[in-house]
Design a protein around this nucleic acid. Structure first.
Length: 505
RNA sequence: GGGCCCGUAGCUCAGCGGCAGAGCAGUGGACUUUUAAUCCAUCGGCCGGAGGUUCGAAUCCUCCCGGGCCUACCA
């Protein structure tokens, strides 16, 4: 077992020899088929001939990465893989032009090659390209993870995702399901006449949610900027401008801790529909999630760990007040006093920050005692107004707003309102939040003057939706950690410098 | 932030006070239908880092770095 440096040095030497022969790193290839297409081609014209070069056997030129090799003297088998799948290559000295078989001396697992020849089925039944010509396209300098045990160290899988994807079919599958989830969501909204827009990521103030932002600086404008924590306020300005249905799928950034379900940057879907209310949005979300499940999984019963998430049955509906009563035994209306509520929370084992407001206490109880219980899809309607500064109050009860959150697997999947569009009331609510901020609470909604002014020009009644798409990916893939569905999850800096082949002895 | 666990060869892992190990990969050789090819030979180490205990530390202790799980926070 030579050191990593020696392994790389071996491959660098082979690269030199390859270049000396006039090969290596060509810009163009002669590929005629993907690996999968070649197998399909052969099976559709199955000649059954086990002897290469005979009769009407189909011909193909393939390219891909060598993932395994079995050399038997004057013949060799290579496993070739491209983005479509894999196929076996058969190299035989007497089938190849003079000197080409000896290229094997320069080949390592991990290199990309091109081979052109005849498709056959071997004695053991495998569809195989019997090469009549081949070359090395790319010399890989680093050894790939071991072929049988593969790559399992989570840290390496996350930090060097390319190796994880090469080594683990499951990781490729998760990436494909995640991508299909996003494209299906996009198509769902497009098919319903929503306009997809792109609004600024760099903004003056981080509004639309309550979270700490990342701060940055624009040199030419000599301006402090922050990265958005939400998309909401810009999309509402588009409703004001006259678009009735808009949506955006975009990254938002929250300067908070990491966990198995939180990443500092994540993919947020927001949609706004004029002349709709939160009941309409709830119906749409139910359709959306079911549609995605059918498109990417082909079923409405999604296995997740030990349980099955049932998307087919009608989704449970409750209210914030009922949910707290059922799971925590607290009717928050019996505790209009902050300290009394904090006492009730403490009795139930919910830790309470002494500085927390009434709203923070009630929400701590919700998060701690209620949300984890909501495993099967559950809508929770009608949140306390104090928790929801951008939502419209119920006409029959101004203490609560027309807001719902959707919970699946014990965590928040979606958040939706009948959007507050009374500019005077909106200003009053945001000013109340500003008082909290002045009292030291950094995680409250900011009063965005540009948004408030826009609202004064008149926003139609509308229903809005926000949904973290990584959580939808987690549901669709059955993964329990957001790091599995993020291709490059945020990690701490390991501190050492990247290894370079240039440093190899 | 707190608790538990992990870090040994390129990869997957064993060793847990007494000479640093295995498989795969690599290197040399044999082999024209293999598919975890096989067979022979062989190279290979900052045991995450720094201190400490000890005659002696990969092994025990402390701190630090990185990761995982649980938990908390993120309305």
């Amino acid at each position: 077992m030579p050191t990593e440096g020696e392994l790389i040095a071996n491959r660098l030497a082979k690269r030199e020899r390859l270049l000396a022969r006039g090969g290596g790193y060509p810009a163009r290839t002669r590929r005629t088929h993907s690996c999968r297409a070649a197998v399909t081609l052969f099976e559709s014209t199955e000649s059954g001939s086990a002897e290469p070069g005979s009769g009407s056997a189909p011909h193909a030129a393939l390219g891909g990465r060598v993932t395994g090799q079995r050399v038997l003297g004057r013949a060799a088998f290579l496993d070739l893989r491209d983005g479509s799948g894999s196929i076996q290559l058969y190299l035989r000295r007497d089938l190849l032009p003079e000197g080409e078989y000896e290229l094997l001396e320069l080949l390592d697992v991990g290199d990309f090659v091109e081979a052109e020849g005849t498709l056959i089925r071997t004695r053991s039944g495998e569809v195989t390209l019997a090469a009549e010509s081949w070359r090395i396209l790319v010399k890989a300098l680093r050894p790939l993870p071991e072929k049988w045990a593969g790559l399992s160290d989570p840290e390496t899988r996350y930090r060097e995702r390319h190796l994880d994807l090469v080594a683990n079919e499951r990781s490729r599958e998760v990436a494909r399901i995640s991508a299909a989830t996003v494209s299906t969501v996009r198509r769902f909204f497009e098919d319903r006449g929503f306009l997809e827009v792109a609004t600024p990521v760099l903004v003056d103030q981080a509004g639309g949610a309550a979270a700490r932002p990342f701060r940055t600086y624009h040199n030419a404008l000599d301006r402090e900027l922050v990265l958005r924590i939400s998309i909401e306020l810009h999309l509402k300005r588009l409703l004001i401008g006259g678009f009735d249905r808009v949506f955006e799928i975009g990254r938002v950034f929250r300067n908070e801790g990491l966990s198995h379900r939180h990443n500092p940057e994540f993919l947020l879907l927001e949609s706004y529909e004029a002349y709709a209310d939160y009941e309409d949005v709830a119906r749409m979300v139910e359709q959306l999630v079911r549609h995605v499940a059918m498109e990417v999984r082909g079923t409405l019963e999604i296995p997740h760990g030990d349980l099955v998430v049932d998307l087919a049955s009608p989704w449970a509906r409750t209210t914030y007040r009922e949910a707290l009563l059922e799971h925590a035994g607290i009717d928050y209306r019996d505790y209009p006093d902050r300290d009394a509520l904090a006492g009730a929370a403490a009795e139930r084992g919910v830790p309470v920050d002494p500085a927390a407001s009434w709203a923070s206490v009630v929400d701590a109880i919700m998060q701690r005692l209620v949300e984890p219980e909501l495993v099967q899809p559950t809508f929770v309607f009608d949140y306390p107004t104090e928790l929801s500064p951008l939502a419209k109050a119920r006409e029959d009860d101004p203490a609560v707003v027309e807001r719902f959150e959707l919970f699946i697997l014990g965590y928040e999947f979606a958040n939706a309102y009948s959007e507050l569009n009374d500019p005077v009331e909106q200003r009053r609510r945001l000013e109340a939040q500003a008082l909290k901020r002045a009292a030291g609470d950094e995680e409250v909604e900011v009063a965005d003057e540009a948004f408030l002014e826009a609202l004064e020009s008149g926003m139609p009644p509308a229903g809005g939706l926000g949904m973290g798409l990584e959580r939808l990916m987690m549901l669709m893939t059955g993964e329990h950690s957001i790091r599995e569905v993020l291709l490059f999850p945020a990690l701490r800096d390991r501190g050492d410098s990247p290894k370079s082949p240039g440093n190899a002895p």
